[in-house]
Amino acid sequence: MAVRSIRVFGDPVLTSVSAPIEEIDDGVRALVADLIDTVKLPGRAGVAAPQIGVGLRAFSYNVDGEIGYILNPVLVEVSGEPEAIGEGCLSVPGLWHDTVRYPYARVVGIDLDGNELVLEGEGLMAQALQHETDHLDGKLYLSRLEPAERRVAMREVRESDWF
Rank of each mutant, 00 (worst) to 15 (best):
V3Q: 12
V3Y: 00
S5M: 13
D11T: 08
P12G: 02
L14F: 10
I21K: 07
D25V: 10
V28Y: 03
A30V: 13
L31M: 12
V32P: 14
V32L: 07
D34L: 10
D34C: 10
L35W: 06
L35Y: 05
V39L: 05
V39K: 03
L41G: 11
P42A: 03
P50N: 14
Q51H: 07
G53Q: 13
G53M: 10
L56C: 07
F59G: 12
S60K: 00
N62C: 13
N62R: 11
N62A: 12
V63D: 15
D64Y: 01
G68H: 01
V76Y: 00
E77H: 08
E83I: 08
C89P: 05
L90N: 07
P93E: 03
L95G: 04
D98N: 13
D98T: 06
V100G: 02
Y102I: 01
P103M: 06
V107E: 09
V108H: 05
V108D: 07
G109P: 09
I110W: 02
D111L: 04
N115Y: 00
V118Q: 09
E120I: 07
G123I: 03
G123K: 02
M125K: 00
A126P: 11
L129S: 00
Q130A: 10
D134S: 06
D137Q: 14
K139W: 05
L145S: 05
A148G: 01
R155K: 12
E156F: 00
E156Y: 00
R158G: 05
R158F: 04
D161C: 00
D161N: 06
